[in-house]
Design a binder for these strands. Structure first.
Length: 605
RNA sequence: GCCCUGGUAGUGUAGCGGCCUAUCAUGAAGCCCUGUCGAGGCUCCGACUCGGGUUCAAAUCCCGACCAGGGCGCCA
């Protein structure tokens, strides 16, 4: 159908008879000579209808009438000779811009209706609304940016596959129709026709299957796995998403972490041609929370938090005392002078007005407000500094390493609230002060997470990650099991969690103890996880693994605002497929055979 | 469930109580033009999300709904 692609022709091809096929992206009719930019996945080539240079008048008339009949984004093929462009009209921006194809014959392969939005990139023409892009995703994907995003994603996944294959990993597919288990996110439910009243769940992840592959002796498993979670979406969360899922037997956490580091390093080498420094730094959960105010720290810039409760409790500042009397904490951040004293009109300056705005912002974060002090002529100054005795001020200066011009910001509240607000403040300032411009990506491992946490409302013990994490010690041997650490590790990239993994409970008794601590009855354990515990009881090897969020990883590598930019056919915020208009009602007869008719009746009115 | 932001021609926007018969660009339709490459020139088409309210007067202010996005909760 074609002899070359639209990105292929060079001066080497001069004089050759070629056939190209593609979409008509632009056309320029000069009232005699007609230029078309013919585009396909590989590039754009200028093809020319030049009637004066043609001898066959019948052919001229045929082409003239043909070119009147279709518009932009119609699909045509042209046959003609590769020739040099007229001297001085070469297009240096286009790899094919030295040459053009002189059209001898052309064929309309398919016409396009007038477009709902412009596919061709144009200066100053902004993207249409996202709902329209999703409604006509196939047109959106024709845009170079989207096309590049999907091709980039492919290279990321291909690089991972290549590395893992070379390291002896076996890609195994696991079921999509699975059993619903009580733990974790809300399941998507699929009714069974053969067993009416019973349901499958779409997998939240292949967790149990990959562990049983380890029991089955696969030893090194991976999968580019589709996962489903019926929880509300975010810019980095979709109801269906893709994980690079890995599991290994006879390993400990350093083996898994090393493998992932090497996989990502080889990916970096292939894609960026750069060395990715490994090993990645480790940050403990405790340090992450106390210095970054989040379990997904972005370590590419400073502004770390410091707990100064022990210092400021010796002050006379009523606001702090009120918080401290309720068991709260005060955290402090030093915004260094180089950030606060930028050129005066610059929008990165943090002057008095900006501090006032930060105070308002802090109130919006659920804080009572925000307290500040500025280091001027060797002294901390502010409207409330009189409540802070000399030794308190000296203590603050020392702990925060305050230098001339530095701005100290204090947040007071319950420990978790103060730290989380501090973490948000860090992120906000990094954005406002443009601290991230030009920074390389930075991976870190988050380690030392607890095994359990308590629901702040119900007091119920919950897992910090999931119930299959191996405890970092022996359960039930005195001490408080609820304070047990877990042998887990999260991979964080630029302040986003992109992976989570752990050593697993391969001993069925340990696994059973974890379930019990979570408040599950023996009957419940047996009914929901009996099959799994049984598998562990037949010689399960010590094993562990990790899963990386492919959508997030690719999105961060490309710097896109949301993961929808790196997914071919994403859902909108309400989980609707705007292109195929899913979800959609089904016929009653189909509900009937699933014994779901009673639900259909609720649709009335 | 809650909070925030936004809904103006096919698309992207301006306007934010009377200068609105609503701006500009792009697009579509048509005409002109032989070297452009986001071609150019001319003509023409086309919109205030919906429902209440305030007002002499509403695209503009208020209330509610709907739609979209961001966030909180949620996401083991």
């Amino acid at each position: 159908m074609r002899t070359h692609t639209c990105g292929e022709l060079r001066p080497d091809h001069l004089g050759q008879k070629v056939t190209l096929a593609g979409w008509v992206r632009f056309s320029r009719d000069h009232g005699g000579v007609l230029f078309l930019d013919l585009a396909d996945a590989y590039g754009t080539t200028q093809v020319v209808f030049d009637p004066e240079a043609m001898e066959d008048r019948a052919a001229v008339e045929g082409l003239e009438s043909l070119f009147k009949t279709f518009g932009r984004e119609s699909v045509i093929s042209v046959h003609g000779i590769v020739r040099n462009r007229v001297e001085g009209t070469e297009d240096a921006r286009n790899p094919t811009g030295q040459v053009e194809v002189f059209i001898e014959t052309a064929e309309l392969l398919n016409r396009s209706r007038p477009l709902p939005f412009e596919v061709a990139e144009q200066k100053g023409s902004l993207l249409p609304g996202e709902d329209l892009r999703l409604r006509y995703r196939y047109l959106d994907l024709r845009r170079t940016e989207m096309s590049n995003n999907l091709r980039f994603r492919h290279r990321v996944i291909a690089a991972a596959r290549r590395y893992l294959d070379g390291a002896g990993f076996v890609e195994v597919e696991t079921p999509t129709l699975t059993r619903s288990t009580p733990e974790g996110a809300r399941d998507f439910i699929v009714p069974s026709r053969i067993t009416p009243g019973s349901f499958y769940a779409l997998p939240q992840s292949p967790q149990l299957y990959k562990q049983m592959l380890m029991v089955g002796g696969i030893d090194r498993y991976y999968q580019v796995a589709r996962c489903f979670r019926d929880e509300d979406s975010r810019s980095d969360r979709q109801p269906e998403f893709t994980q690079l899922d890995v599991e290994m037997s006879f390993v400990d956490e350093t083996d898994i972490q090393g493998l992932i580091e090497r996989t990502l390093a080889s990916m970096w080498k292939e894609i960026y041609g750069k060395e990715l420094p490994i090993p990645f730094p480790r940050v403990t959960f405790y340090d992450a929370m106390h210095h970054y105010g989040t379990d997904a720290p972005d370590v590419r810039y400073g502004l770390e938090l410091n707990d100064v409760t022990d210092i400021v409790e010796r002050s006379n500042y009523e606001i702090f005392h009120r918080v401290l009397s309720k068991g709260g904490r005060v955290v402090c951040m030093n915004v260094k002078a180089e950030y606060t004293h930028a050129t005066s009109a610059d929008d990165t300056m943090v002057g008095r007005n900006e501090v006032d705005r930060l105070i308002e912002w802090a109130k919006g974060q659920g804080m009572g407000g925000l307290t500040w002090m500025r280091m001027i002529e060797g002294e901390l100054t502010s409207n409330i500094v009189k409540y802070f005795p000399d030794d308190v001020r000296a203590g603050l200066i020392e702990r925060l390493d305050a230098k001339e011009g530095d701005l100290l910001l204090f947040l007071a509240g319950s420990e978790i609230a103060a730290l989380k607000a501090g973490g948000e403040l860090r992120r906000k300032l990094a954005r406002d002060l443009r601290l991230l411009e030009g920074k390389d990506h930075q991976f870190v491992w988050l380690v030392g997470c607890p095994l359990f946490q308590r629901d702040p409302l119900t007091g119920q013990l919950e897992t910090f990650h999931h119930p299959f994490v191996r405890p970092d010690g022996c359960l039930g041997e005195g001490g408080d099991d609820t304070c047990m650490g877990g042998r887990s590790y999260d991979l964080v990239l630029d302040g986003s969690e992109i992976g989570s993994g752990s050593m697993r409970c391969h001993d069925p008794e340990v696994q059973r103890q974890v379930f019990r601590l979570l408040g599950m009855s023996d009957e419940k354990i047996e009914s929901d996880f009996g099959f799994f515990l049984e598998a562990l009881s037949y010689g399960a090897p010590p094993h562990g693994g990790i899963a990386l969020g492919v959508d997030r990883l690719v999105s961060i590598m490309l710097g896109t605002e949301s993961i929808r930019e790196v997914i071919a056919f994403p859902k909108n915020k309400k989980f609707q497929g705007l292109m195929d208009r899913s979800p959609a009602p089904v016929e009653e007869s189909r509900l009937a055979e699933l014994q779901l008719l009673s639900l259909a009746g609720d649709e009335e009115e």
